[in-house]
Design a protein around this nucleic acid. Sequence first.
DNA 1: CGGATATATTTTGAACCTAAAGTAATGGAT
DNA 2: ATCCATTACTTTAGGTTCAAAATATATCCG
Lengths: 173, 173
Amino acid sequence: MTELPDGSVWIDAETKIADAPADHRDDLRLWLRLLTCTNLIETEIRRKLQSHFDFTLPRFDLLAQLDRAEDGLVLGEVSKRLMVSAGNVTAIVDRLIGNGHITRSPAPHDRRVQIIRMTPEGRRAFRAMAGQHGDWIGDMFDDLGPGDIEMLMGLLANLKGSVRRSLSNGGAS
Amino acid sequence: MTELPDGSVWIDAETKIADAPADHRDDLRLWLRLLTCTNLIETEIRRKLQSHFDFTLPRFDLLAQLDRAEDGLVLGEVSKRLMVSAGNVTAIVDRLIGNGHITRSPAPHDRRVQIIRMTPEGRRAFRAMAGQHGDWIGDMFDDLGPGDIEMLMGLLANLKGSVRRSLSNGGAS
DNA sequence: CGGATATATTTTGAACCTAAAGTAATGGAT
DNA sequence: ATCCATTACTTTAGGTTCAAAATATATCCG
């Protein structure tokens, strides 16, 4: 048994006893790569949305939710689906109303509730942007084969599961 | 040859002629999953950094760069490494100076250049946070085996390559 | 030397984002 | 009927982010 530089102890090629704090080096490298990849793509999408349509990603994301809801959506539902705070939704909605892409009206049965709906121009604008958006993503992912995509989907599902487990455990507080 | 519902044409099990706009459905699903995963982890790290240390992720990231540079870093270099705008670096640096974590001083050879360095308290605070940060990531990634991690590293490297190719081609404008 | 150009940083204005406080309306429970 | 808790949303204050304009300094060229 040999003492290693980091203070842990080497048993064989597969076993390392954690008598010293684990360093999580590979996890951190993977996290960094994941973050870099995502930011690279997201930044490019933001840039293109801005230069082609003078639009922002949060507004696009909100319209994407609304596009699938023929009867509009309640603000709370939008907040949940986009996983952003209610106050944030209010701000984005205000701007989309200002541009004429959506409307906001109180629900008839409960005056606390506000329902937003796409206007025809909003829908038209969104459809045009969504088509381009799909092409942009398609182009950025073009080197990945169907097998790569499937494998990534699976591994990311595992990761998501692991993260959710950690969250529900109050993991490491 | 059969007309399909989406307007494209079926040849055999492997070939589909794109006379209709491609829909990139799988690419979009993968992108959505990637984004969701990353945001889930990032949000949790932000939350824990805030509740445990009253600190923010951008400030942590800046200190992480500075921690490895014994002689400090020039602001432009920080901007490049963090991949954020120079104006953004200025704002974060101002706050870190306010908290006493770093210092800023003009370079002797070129008075345009500002060099930032960690203070001893800054270094101490960062080291404490970095240890916890590693544990948090380690816990969130705990369900992934070494094989999963290696495979993800490889697939994400492929994706990164694909994205960079697309960017350099001015892909889809 | 002097002027044009380039570089490094800061400032400004606008958008996004959150947590927490505030407002308004609903739905009990007594 | 009235109080109380809950719910839905908005407002506020503070931090992050960018693009573009402003500032200051350095460098190059004639």
